[in-house]
Write a protein that binds this DNA or RNA. Structure first.
Length: 428
DNA sequence: TCTGGGGTCCTAGGACCC
DNA sequence: TCTGGGGTCCTAGGACCC
């Protein structure tokens, strides 16, 4: 067990990434949106100060955005992913044990020594990431991951810390816990926090002092682990070799609702294609496939959710086979007369692809198909996505995510966003 | 009036995370 | 008019077995 765990947390990561290449954005409110102009998924500090809530539907906050000249971007995951991996590279200079927890966060072990106090290491990390990547990070240091999260929470909010807070053996640890609202504790979501609040457990300190039995029955073993972690007992070790994924899901809300089976087929084939690519990239094959379609849950229209799961026997990683199954499922769940807003595909029961090299029937055809699939992937890698594609796949349709109408280069002004948006919906 | 017991596997649903 | 997407883990309950 490491002596201490540091959490390195990029501040407002997506918004900060946009700033890396556009110095003009510094000091300005910046937000990043999800697909279809849906929701706010990242905000700069200035945008938070304007009261723009995380996850807020864009259309509900347009007025504020316009009034304050907020800079609006659509997500550029390629950019964020690239900056993220560069950041992780730098972190590995400071510790042999780095867990890349998410695109903008990492846990790492730190060794305490008189020569290098922990907070000094934290400052060095912060300075180097800022200098080399241009992203500001917060560093929280403590005995466990959950406590490191608490440390980072305060490091982010207190000017005095200058972005680094070491709570190991700190006389302030208890004070920090007392000043952490229970809903801010890692692992405590909206449901648990409502439950805890109703029992008078309001802070991380209150939660730390809850009896084990009570935590176990009310919050399951997961919550009990959180309580122990708050006491400084490591229950969540660093995960240095991320295990292979267990599911692959590809789903999107449609740009506009669709009502026909034909359009849903095109959408589903598109999502299956993406799912197949993920599967083969990770050298996995799927043992089951679920296809689902949904109406718009925010609308007052009649609602319908349909889903169908098939076991895949034999397992497969071939897009054409997955498409056939998914479309068969789609036929069984499709109902006439609904306005569909979303569809998706989940691949489950994944196993390494090399375990399914031989098939009992038609093995030769299967082998040829795998070869073909490999070539298709290679061609698409070189010449661009969907250069080669399979039946039912159509590039366009009402269902396609309205995407890129705000490319980072062109949508830094509200007036521009409006114009581009109206151009898209105008009958040209 | 009585209605085994314990183990395992699977699935759906609920909680959480970013 | 416009409300994201992709994951993990745990539990309860049913099916099935001996």
């Amino acid at each position: 067990m490491p002596e201490a765990i540091a959490l390195i947390d990029a501040n407002n990561f997506y918004a900060s990434c946009e700033r890396v290449f556009d110095a003009r954005l510094h000091g300005k409110p910046v937000i990043v949106l999800s697909n279809n102009d849906g929701n706010i998924i990242a905000r700069s500090q200035e945008a938070k100060a304007l009261g723009l809530p995380m996850g807020a539907p864009f259309f509900k906050v347009r007025e504020i955005i316009e009034r304050h000249g907020v800079e609006v971007f659509s997500s550029n995951y390629a950019l964020y992913g690239d900056l993220s991996s560069r950041m992780m590279d730098i972190l590995s200079d400071f510790s042999p044990e780095v867990e890349c927890y998410s695109i903008d966060e990492a846990f790492m072990s730190l060794i305490d020594s008189s020569r290098q106090p922990l907070d000094k290491i934290g400052r060095a990390i912060r300075a180097r990431v800022k200098k080399h990547i241009g992203i500001p990070v917060t560093v929280g240091i403590a005995e466990t991951k959950t406590l490191a999260k608490v440390a980072a929470y305060h490091a982010k909010r207190s000017e005095k810390t200058k972005g680094v807070l070491d709570l190991t053996r700190s006389p302030y640890q208890e004070l920090a816990l007392a000043r952490t609202p229970v809903e801010e504790v890692w692992g405590i979501g909206p449901q648990y926090s409502a439950l805890l609040t109703s029992h008078g457990i309001l802070s991380a300190l209150d939660l730390r002092n809850v009896p084990d039995d009570w935590a176990r029955t009310q919050l399951t073993v997961v919550g009990l682990r959180t309580v122990h972690e708050l006491r400084g007992i490591q229950c969540l070790p660093l995960d240095l070799s991320p295990s292979t994924r267990k599911t692959v899901t590809v789903s999107r809300s449609f740009g506009s609702t669709v009502e026909t089976l034909k359009e849903l087929r095109a959408a589903v084939a598109f999502y299956v294609t993406r799912a197949g690519e993920k599967l083969r990239r990770d050298r996995l094959a799927a043992g089951s496939l679920t296809v689902f379609i949904e109406t718009n849950r925010f609308s007052s229209e009649r609602q319908y959710n349909g889903a169908k799961t098939f076991q895949l026997s034999p397992m497969t990683d071939l897009t054409p086979e997955l498409i056939v199954v998914a479309l068969r499922g789609l036929e069984t769940i499709f109902r006439e007369g609904y306005k569909y807003k979303r569809a998706g595909v989940t691949l489950d029961n994944l196993a390494p692809a090399e375990t399914l090299t031989k098939r009992l029937w038609d093995n030769e055809a299967y082998e040829r198909m795998r070869e073909l699939m490999k070539v298709v992937d290679e061609i698409n890698a070189v010449f661009g996505r969907d250069t080669v594609r399979f039946g039912y796949f159509e590039r366009d349709g009402k269902w396609r995510t309205r995407f890129g109408k705000r490319s980072p280069r062109y949508t830094t002004r509200w007036e521009e966003i409006l114009r581009v948006g109206s151009t898209l919906s105008a009958p040209i």
